[in-house]
């Protein structure tokens, strides 16, 4: 079990290119995050929880689908940690598991209105499914 967690942790660090050890715990990412209120785990927690291997709660958290990938945390982090990339890697680790797509093409029709740009649909599918 410990081995499994370690593998997952290494995989997330590898594909994100993020080194969570660079974090100095200042919380600026969470201080600037526009989706903070929608998230159960906040950007700085993603960083520290991945670092400590406490990844399971993140995989099951709705927070994964509330991040706007607006890169505010990436640009404003004083240490160059890039939390959004880490959140993206955890999200991929979740949706890449078989049957774990968070949104599929079948879900789309009920979400449509006549003005919604195509861009929103392809973006959401790319973020929420594999």
């Amino acid at each position: 079990m410990r081995k499994e967690i370690e593998n997952l942790q290494n995989e997330i660090i590898r594909i994100s290119g993020v080194n969570p050890r660079k974090c100095m715990r200042c919380g600026k990412c969470s201080g600037t995050c526009p989706a903070y209120d929608e998230m159960e785990y906040h950007p700085h927690q993603f960083v520290s929880m991945v670092e400590s291997g406490d990844i399971e709660p993140l995989l099951n958290s709705k927070s994964l689908y509330q991040c706007l990938t607006c890169f505010a945390c990436v640009d404003r982090c004083p240490r160059g940690v890039e939390p959004a990339k880490l959140i993206e890697a955890v999200r991929l680790a979740a949706v890449r598991k078989q049957g774990q797509n968070h949104m599929t093409a079948n879900d789309i029709p009920e979400k449509l209105d006549e003005d919604i740009p195509q861009q929103a649909l392809v973006s959401a599918l790319r973020k929420y499914s594999k």
Binding site: A35, D37, Y65, Q66, L68, I108, A120, S123, A124, K127
Partner: peptide
């Protein structure tokens, strides 16, 4: 230079509305 809510409009329209 703050986000409008982006594609999360599909997942969570309330969140996009607030942003």
């Amino acid at each position: 230079n703050e986000c409008c809510g982006g594609y999360v409009a599909l997942e969570n329209p309330d969140s996009a509305k607030e942003k």
